[in-house]
Design a protein around this nucleic acid. Sequence first.
RNA 1: GCGGGCGUGGCGGAAUGGCAGACGCGCCGGUCUUAGGAGCCGGUAUCUUUGAUGUAAGGGUUCAAGUCCCUUCGCCCGCACCA
Length: 800
Amino acid sequence: MAYDYQNIEKKWQKIWDETGVFHAENRSGKPAYYALVEFPYPSGQGLHVGHPRSYTALDIVARKRRLEGYNVLYPMGWDAFGLPTENFAIKNHIHPEIVTKQNVGRFKEQLKALGFSFDWSREINTTDPSYYKWTQWIFLQLYKHGLAYKKEMAVNWCTSCKCVLANEEVVNGVCERCGSEVVRRVKSQWMLKITAYAQRLIDDLDTVDYIDRVKTQQKNWIGRSTGAQVRFPTTAGDALEIYTTRPDTLFGATYMVMSPEHPLLEKWAGLLQNMDAVKDYQAAAARKSDFERSEVAKEKTGVRLEGVMAVNPVNDRQIPIFISDYVLMSYGTGAIMAVPAHDTRDYDFARAFNLPIIEVVAGGNVEQAAFTDCETGTMVNSGLLNGLTVEEAKKKIIAYLEEKGIGEPKVNYKLRDWVFSRQRYWGEPIPMVYCETCGWVPLPESELPLLLPAVDSYEPTDTGESPLAKMADWVNTKCPHCGGPAKRETDTMPQWAGSSWYFLRYTDPHNDQALASREALDYWLPVNWYNGGMEHTTLHLLYSRFWHKFLFDIGVAPTSEPYAKRTSHGMILGENGEKMSKSKGNVVNPDDIVNQYGADTMRLYEMFIGDFEKTAPWSSSSIKGCKRFLERVWNLAEHMTEGGVRAELEGAFHRTIRKVTEDIEDLKFNTAIAAMMALLNELDKTKTVTKEELKLLIILLNPFAPHITEEIWVQKGFGGMLNQTEWPAYDEAKCAEDTVEAAVQVNGKLRARIILPAGCEKEEALAAAKADEKVGAAINGKSIVKEIYVPGKLVNLVVK
RNA sequence: GCGGGCGUGGCGGAAUGGCAGACGCGCCGGUCUUAGGAGCCGGUAUCUUUGAUGUAAGGGUUCAAGUCCCUUCGCCCGCACCA
């Protein structure tokens, strides 16, 4: 009988659905295991071949865990709020809710066709009011704990999406989503105080098992630095406060620089003789986009303040103050002390403005370039610091500053608070009301969910107002506090809101009393293994860790970290090695692959395509090899005979079980498959397979290719369903082969291969090696100075 | 500029410091066939082939290096005037 993958796959998908074998229970005698993959945004394009790479990997883990005796939660849902749906709705005059429903339907069908063992009874959708009720509830808790606040400030504005973006959403000066230009706009925005968690978000990385590049990237993004905050007196009377990581170089500060947006400038307006020039420079800086302003290697520009001087507090010298856009208002204090001898940017600026450069760390040549090395230099021209190393000088000067009351140690982070409002329709309404007398008032929890109203037009506006602002009867409401007239917040939450806590909802998705019951959360959390894209490292992954820590602090979440383990898959590129895109015409449609080769082949191929963590180009010819492999397994099963594992194959089976068992845990799916292919090659040589051998082979293969293996299981009469059986154990002792082929080297060069019995002693191995004809010729007439024996691997004779 | 990673056949990729190229694709040959673009069997790094040389290039450590160290080149990713 031929391998009819289409009927087999449909049959088993139906059986799994109807029997509910993959439903997880919230209590069980078995140990719990929570496997998680990022839920997709249901776009109009349908599933991308990249999605199944991640989903198959953890489906393999989930299926293996079930066979290992765990109660496994492997859920799926929809991260459905977002701009593409809204834009599609605008263009085609269909409500986003309807678009979402259609897209979800298609995605679900596609995922089911791939045979993932998701517990569909726990399906969630972030746009469902019964879901976003709790997203809004969490926002209210953040507000009540002072972690949500509204602030007027310069923000990133995407000119195409017509809404603000978080810092994390701006990539190389353009919008992360659409690639359009991002400009600065001053707007009043809801902000979330993620910076309050900066240190814990770094520290707690030590408590979780994330791949290193994720940890490094999050640490870099949070950007902790240590130094000192120092107050410089000025002739204006106000102290100018600066932050520096190099307080040791304080004696080398020959001028100061303020950001053009620094508030003291306004205060000093009357004192500044060149206020016109200052204003021109401020205006020019404000006009620049973030991208222009942060362009590297550009000429340093600035204006010297005439009328106010600063005083270096360690030597009482008067030094000039400049404004320049290389100093950012958003970091530190918005002002710096400039030490041109030991900072590259200050050096460039000093050269451009012909300012003095005083060396205070000896070891470089400050005539030619700034000397920024902290390891090797010695302090000079620095009064009490002379002769010290940089590290010693830092400690001493900070103690001195504290003693004199002019400075103190300080930690700074690059992380900024999270800009949380969006001027778009298709998102969660922010449950806040503005009252002229009471100010911002949170909606009572009893009024949640605050439903997204139906509007006629979802079109965003250039003025920066949300489409909801036009809904007068929705906007105008009563103040929950004083009962007077008030207006609702019309901005909505960003795409990242719903996904910041969705893994909690899966544990108890139908609960209408709480985001999830404490029992369910205690049982399942933390997520044991979470796989997702690297592109979310400083977005979703960071945001959800922040929310989770907050929920932990207020006693809602049971753990301080949401995910015990995080791994990441590489992207699948088009056949030409470029990123898949419609415009390049290199998009592979999963539906076509499933139709042409079947879901099992597709799953197997995506796992065999290469190193799981690296990008890999699609290959329409390589996939045939995976299809052939499954067909060969099918055909071999047709030749099954009764009996146990044949003695001569026992070692091979134990080694393959070990290899597959271990490789799945190490994300080495490609070599696990290679091991099964090699085993099949061995079996094929014998033209037959015993019942016990076949059983072992198809259990190992089941997590990768679940349909074909279940079908063989029933056809060959193994009883029950494969997914209810047990993962095979291996015996380390039986993994060893009876005889091994060892290499014999003379002076490190391969001269022969000899067959040795397993566990062969050194003496015996050396004797066998020397007895070899070619080895004999190579050592003839020379004296052996060293004999090396690596058991079971090689002999190396060093001769002279 | 800083930080991280990588560089192996025609291709995707394997190799706890111990036989480089597992496994697969492709290709070549054979077989079966009216036919083969299916299946099966065999082969497939290079060369001046009793041997020698090969893991981006050069140097080093070691009995032994794709793997460790140094230099250079190239590619990818992250951050990017963060004081």
